[in-house]
Design a protein around this nucleic acid. Structure first.
Length: 423
RNA sequence: GGAGGAAUGGCAGAGUGGUCGAAUGCACUAGUCUUGAAAACUAGCGAGGGUCACACCUCCGGGGGUUCGAAUCCCUCUUCCUCCGCCA
């Protein structure tokens, strides 16, 4: 959520920046400013009424104390009117505030200056590329065929017990999965991220805090009976750990990592691009989350990108980094780098990590602030990224590491797996 | 699930109808002293709205009510603690 003060001060800049997302925010911002003005007018009026009423109450108290009951009683009539007025005014204030809030929720984050404009993923800007694309043997298979051939992932079994998009990992497949999780967590810990284990279901307030609610309810599984949501990413519970906090600057930098399964309804996604592990309802991910001082957040973002690079380098997977264009940028992000692994057998790039700076957008919703040098509280910056999402990394490994005699295990994972080949 | 108790500023903890946005302690910030630090002393120190700045308004877990007036009384929800039951 954007800050009202920022909209008041920099309306034109914001409208211009939002053009990168291909939206014309002018009418919406205009409405926001009008509602804001209306809200403040109501507030002022209410304040004055309450002030008068407070003063009278004090006076009545004094009169009773000094035994002037008649005078006191005559003043009481007056407060009755004021009470009615203030009730009406506070209702008006409440309504206006709610309308204003709803409008504010509709405005996406302002893209960072480095974000290229563009409409679709084709307009994303490739900023880095590394790793050799392997030459596979002539009978190379996509990962869903490999999974079947070596009996390491069973999609049909998942359908039987749950439904499509809930695979069952078997034997060495399960072990490799667990190895990746441990390996990622270890790498993140090494880089200074504190490991956290958090709940996999969250309440409504948490959904609002990170921006999944309102509007994106459809993405999350909702447990109606208890009004809880299955997390779509560890970003939600981990970032919400700080909801409502007032930090001091010495608390920075805050670096957390956590492994969680992630649940996504992904309504309406079907077709060849979602085959196998490409898109699932339940998948595993290791996430990194940072809470930063505004001055250091973009440096922190670069640090996160470098960190993810080192992991992919160690895994010896060919990958590239994209800076997302305005049209592809998530609603709450100011700047996002996507990591994609090249799947040689599918001959396409697979997104395996998304690293973003949300600046104050989430913090404003979360009321996550810190005391600055002058002792004033201001909003912190939040960031997060995948380090990494499992299924497509697994797909990349299976496909890129396949040989005629089986699938080799990347060297760094062998100690975690306890075997070096899947055959 | 049953019975009882509790929720106050960053933390601890007073406060049972007006003088309470709230004692006190700790923490924190600035200053004095010191080569520096510690200790001691002095001062400041909750959050949000509002204002050029004041004024003023709101907030004592959330919501509602009683009253001229509520941290304080009533209702309700949530959470925590103690005891009992059940249970991995």
């Amino acid at each position: 959520m954007l800050q009202l003060q920022a909209i008041r001060d920099n309306k034109e800049e914001i409208i211009n920046a939002l053009k990168k997302r291909n939206i014309d925010a002018a009418p919406l911002l205009q409405e926001v400013l009008q509602l804001d003005e209306k809200r403040r007018a109501a507030q002022t009026q209410l304040d004055a009424t309450l002030a008068e009423s407070n003063a009278l109450s004090k006076e009545i108290g004094q009169l009773f104390k000094t035994g002037k009951a008649d005078e006191a009683n005559s003043l009481k009539d007056k407060t009755g009117i004021l009470k009615e007025d203030s009730k009406k005014l506070s209702e008006e204030l409440h309504n206006t505030t709610e309308q204003l809030q709803n409008k504010l929720y509709q405005i996406p984050n302002v893209p960072h200056e480095s974000v290229p404009s563009g409409n679709t993923e084709n307009d994303n800007e490739e900023v880095f590329k590394e790793g050799d694309i392997p030459t596979l043997h002539t009978h190379a298979l996509p990962h869903w065929e490999l999974a079947k051939k070596y009996d390491i992932i069973d999609f049909e079994l998942g359908v039987k017990i749950t439904g499509a998009g809930f695979p069952v990992y078997k034997g060495k497949g399960a072990r490799l999965q667990r190895a990746l999780i441990s390996y990622f967590l270890d790498k993140n810990a090494e880089a200074g991220y504190t490991e956290m284990q958090v709940p996999l279901v969250v309440n409504e307030a948490s959904g609002f805090g990170t921006g999944q609610l309102p509007d994106k309810e459809g993405q999350m599984y909702h447990i109606g009976e208890d009004d809880l949501y299955l997390i779509p990413t560890a970003e939600v519970p981990i970032t919400n750990l700080f909801r409502g906090d007032l930090l001091s600057k010495k608390d920075f930098p805050i670096c957390y990592t956590g492994y969680t399964p992630c649940f996504r309804r992904e309504a309406g996604s079907y077709g060849s691009h979602v085959r196998g592990l490409n898109r699932l309802h339940q998948f595993d991910k290791v996430e990194i989350v940072r809470v930063e001082h505004p001055q250091h957040s973009h440096k922190a973002l670069d640090g996160m990108v470098e960190h993810v690079k080192t992991i992919l380098r160690e895994l010896k997977l060919p990958y590239r980094i994209l800076r997302l264009c305005g049209g592809d940028l998530g609603f709450t992000a100011a700047l996002t780098y996507d990591f994609e692994v090249f799947s040689t057998a599918q001959d396409r790039w697979l997104e395996i990590s998304s690293v973003s700076n949300f600046e104050t957008y989430q913090a404003n919703r979360l009321k996550l602030r810190f005391k600055d040098e002058k002792g004033k509280s201001q909003l912190a910056h939040t960031l997060n990224g995948s380090a990494l999402a499992l299924p497509r990394v697994l797909a990349g490994i299976l496909e890129n590491y396949q040989t005629e005699n089986g699938i080799r295990i990347p060297e760094v994972l062998i100690p975690y797996c306890g075997f070096d080949t899947i055959d």
